[in-house]
Design a binder for these strands. Structure first.
Lengths: 366, 366
DNA sequence: CACATCACTTGGATCGATCAAATAGGTGCA
DNA sequence: TGCACCTATTTGATCGATCCAAGTGATGTG
């Protein structure tokens, strides 16, 4: 294996000076076409690639973007994070950047990591996930003029920075409207306790859709911590009500899984599953496996937007706005349940009442 | 905000030379205790941290470890990868390293990324996941003497490199033995088609446990691609057999989910769930949510081992072995199902027999 | 013909750390 | 006294890129 090629070795090979080779890469318009061609073939021949360390030292830019991994189980679930990281890696890669991970057990610990990174000048920018009320990280970063973008709105605080987020309310609104169009009137929402920005947002979409159709929501809202067990309990209570729900929108796939389970408990026949349509959130493999409808976050697109906004900060062009930008993406409703049309109508199929294990063979009509 | 502290500025502050400050960090034993203390307080006062770029340029080490993100849905699932990345970030962080992501759509694309990284000298080492038969990546890296560790055995090829893996066979063996001890005799295994190293490994543990107890396995093995639907179909066929299974061990939680669903279809009452104990693999949130037993991979420990082996390669000590090291970790059996003892005995609860009109596909037995 | 202009190319200094070798000061031993 | 030796610290060179200012011809212009 030959020695690593350097700027000098390439220059010698092409019979030009160091700087000319450098220009061939960074400012090709300065070179005479013939020279450029000669240098490029020399670069090719020696398989030259500029040393990241040297370039970084001189330019004080590392071409690295940091992402704090949220503590497991906190906020974003593994599947969502995984896909987001994928998108981020791809998008930043094609812009010449790489993604660096650092662990972030909590705000303070994460800030400590920022401090270290700032001092060692090892990162150009940050992407924050799992924004929440009273997030101290954004203020810390803003104070020091470090470029960053958050995936998630700055709940509570005013937005002094750029962010990208998925419009949860629009998603649940669409899902609910869809169910209403299919004839449902008693559509329940199972979500999280008030106070979590994301949860409140998702709930509000359901509320607005119900309000827009003049449908009452009394007895249709259940709020509990995330998890299948919560969904199970919630669904059980919704079914025993005097005027039970005929469809359910959930703030997460975990809750949806619980709901699915509760419905199976009432009636195990496969066809009746669709009788009470369920809509989850995040479109995880679980939803796909069980045939539950779900709202898919456009994670790759979100990641691309994050990178785009970061690049605006890192390499501002002439037409780059000075104001921080905000991007809100709509989730996509993935309709599954019984492979039929948008949502099953309750007029076609009787609503499930508890106590009587309805054996409904109806099957996949329509 | 003050200027970034450099080696020189700290030296001036402590009234010593550059090199002395450098030694205070890298070779403290060379300094006089008094000098050391003086320098350290100067470092403290100026919040000095060595520039990564400069250090990297001089030492030609980046303190970065690369991890190729496997294409989504391929091999490792998001949850497992997430936890592994967490562990890796933590473990390498405490060793002074950071984790860099790069996308890897396939072997070739990944190798291209290696080439780039090699040329720019931007990474010190690699961690590979999702090793498979005929993996070209390891050979490529080994040829060029690049330090790397795989999380996953080198299936098929001989092991010329260090690796860490989870002993799937030991896990399924333990689970099966446990079920046998609880009185089960007809224990099925639902896995993947022959040829995938991981799948074959997990199957073999069940086989050896059955053999050790002199139990026949005829009609108890079903192999199909991963996914809940496969599990559902497999379980349906197992139940309709003349001598049906009373317990099931699965190669994945996805399959286990399908099995769970198929059992609910037969009998929806909650207590009967435990009648046919299910054991999944990976201990994902789905298993936890549904109360399915599962084999948890010690991902944090695996990540720590990966880092330890990498450090042996990167910073060999006097007592470091020259031979590549292999670490095999045992998964942990997480028993859930009905909160009772290890596994439910079939004598306590009647096994589920079918007889109902279930239309079965007669599927891939063998 | 001198001089400014333009297109292209070059050499020197620099980023901030580490490596290698040299220096200053003390101690031991002949 | 003289020389070797050890400790503690300093000086100069270097890693490989980019920035900056200066240098070379060729051409156009008054």
């Amino acid at each position: 294996m030959a020695e690593r090629a350097t700027l000098d070795s390439v220059a010698a090979h092409a019979r030009v000076s160091r700087q000319t080779v450098s220009n061939a890469l960074n400012a090709p318009h300065l070179l005479h076409p013939d020279t450029l061609a000669r240098v490029q073939s020399a670069i090719e021949a020696t398989n030259y690639r500029p040393s990241r360390a040297a370039r970084s030292l001189r330019t004080s830019r590392s071409q690295l973007i940091g992402v704090g991994l949220p503590a497991a189980g906190d906020g974003v679930n593994g599947y969502v994070l995984d896909r987001f990281l994928h998108g981020l890696t791809e998008a930043s890669g094609s812009a010449g950047y790489h993604v660096l991970l650092f662990s972030a057990g909590g705000d303070e610990q994460e800030i400590e990591a920022y401090d270290d990174i700032l001092a060692t000048q090892s990162l150009d920018a940050f992407v924050l996930t799992s924004t929440h009320h009273g997030d101290r990280r954004t203020a810390w970063l803003a104070e020091r003029d470090l470029p960053f973008v958050t995936f998630g709105r700055p709940w509570g605080t005013s937005a002094g920075h750029s962010w990208v987020d998925v419009d949860g309310a629009a998603g649940t609104h669409e899902a609910t409207t869809n169910l209403i169009a299919a004839g449902h009137r008693r559509i329940a929402f199972i979500g999280w306790p008030d106070g979590s920005g994301v949860g409140d947002d998702r709930r509000s979409g359901w509320q607005s859709a119900m309000a827009a159709a003049d449908l009452p929501t009394d007895g249709l809202l259940v709020q509990d911590q995330d998890g299948a067990e919560s969904g199970r309990v919630a669904m059980a209570s919704l079914l025993t009500a005097s005027d039970p729900a005929t469809a359910v929108v959930c703030a997460s796939d975990s809750l949806a899984l619980g709901v699915y389970d509760a419905l199976r408990q009432v009636d195990g026949s496969p066809s009746s599953r669709a009788a009470v349509p369920i809509v989850g959130f995040d479109d995880t493999p679980v939803a796909a496996a069980l045939g539950i409808s779900s709202l898919a976050q456009p994670l790759v697109a979100a990641a691309q937007e994050c990178v785009r906004l970061l690049l605006d900060l890192l390499e501002p062009g002439p037409d780059t706005a000075d104001q921080p930008a905000h991007v809100l993406l709509a989730p996509r409703l993935v309709v599954r349940a019984s492979g039929a049309g948008p949502m099953t109508s309750p007029t076609d199929r009787p609503a499930v009442h508890v106590g009587q294990p309805i054996t409904n063979e109806e099957g996949e009509t329509q």
